[in-house]
Design a protein around this nucleic acid. Sequence first.
RNA 1: GAGGGUGUAGCUCAGCUGGUAGAGCGGGGGACUGUGGAUCCCCAUGUCGCGGGUUCGAGUCCCGUCACCCUCCCCA
Length: 404
Amino acid sequence: MGETFQAPRGFHDILGSDLKKFRKITSTVRDLLRRYNFEEIITPVVEFAKVFERSIGEATDIVGKEMFVFPDRKGRLLALRPEGTAGVVRAYIQNKLYALRPYHKLFYEGPMFRYERPQTGRYRQFHQIGAEVFGIADPHADAELLKLVSDILSELNIEAVLEINSLGCKVCRPAYREALLEFLQGVAPNLCKDCIDRKERNPLRVLDCKVQTCQEAVREAPKMVDFLCDDCRKHYEKLKEYLKALEVPFRENYNLVRGLDYYTRTVFEAVSPKLGSAIIAGGRYDYLVEEFGGPPTPALGFAVGVERLMLLVEEPQRDYELFFVIPFGEVHAYALKVADTLRKKGKVVEFSYRRGGLKKQLEFADKIRADYAVIIGEDELKEGVVTLKDMRTGEQKKVKPEEI
RNA sequence: GAGGGUGUAGCUCAGCUGGUAGAGCGGGGGACUGUGGAUCCCCAUGUCGCGGGUUCGAGUCCCGUCACCCUCCCCA
């Protein structure tokens, strides 16, 4: 053997039963998105780095230390997309979709890239399916999107808790931030090292620190819900009302904040108790389109972490029958024709390419879990039939190929 | 970026205080050249992750390096 290669750290091949889970997840989500009438959009995997810096926020870890950034030949900085929303927003504006219709519902699916340390459910190349709604300010949209998230979880039979919160808007968030900051200054001596740092960068994040002493220090902290302006409060109350009407179970988590800067009002996460991390997450970003040079457009969306769901779903059963055609003796031409006939009828057929006794071939039929063995020997050739053996029951009978 | 663990056959792993590799599973063949999922027999593979060091001698000890796993930061 010569030199061998390995995929770079955090990059993985997806095959076998993992791929079956992968497809089960993406096809289930796609089918649900279709029922909610979302339209697919494919955006580039590469964007100008600025697209992400401006949307996600320069101070976030995603932009600050997790992006794959590289210069093109003219020295402009490009980046592998670390998430899907920024590119879709860019495309929405560049294609002037806002001029076509009052609102749009789009979804995307594809690989995302973050330069970080791999661990459970976390890779440098991972996959998301995400949905974005542009142009609807009404909490109907929030409720529907959350219903969709809950549909995904139940269709895939995944246990998760849907947590929601409101982060307010331009009107009310600054006052809250101020109050929180003031509170945090007061308890600063009790905060962990990370939180001292967080306090400056993203004070909201201190709220969901896992360190015991921080949780205690923050217990009496002011809550965003108490600072929501009238509009935000109504929006949030309506959303909860709709969720109840839709019978979507949810839990309010006043400490739920998101790491991306663009969120406003509704934020949510589907948290898996088994993984202890979010598997689907999203929220509203009512200012992002405008900040990107488009018309003021309320918007919201979510992203599904495919690899994380893969840790939680069962491998799907094969949903078709497999026929294994076994030529026995000098009957290959006839056997190939039989296989062809079956395939023309839509059957899934594996032809036995190997030599050896019938026994070996049937063993192989077992190995590939064939449902039927189609045995073809000299006798069958003469009679123009095949022996169809049900591998489960062992029963077999001679039939004409076209009758299978 | 920080901390911890692990790298031996295709897979899961064993290999005691250093004396130059092993089991199960899987794979191939056979008992059984027109009948599988049972049983039995036979066979095979390894630069012991890579590089260096200590030693008469290293899978075993030391250093470095790479990869993987787990945790933190952060996130889907």
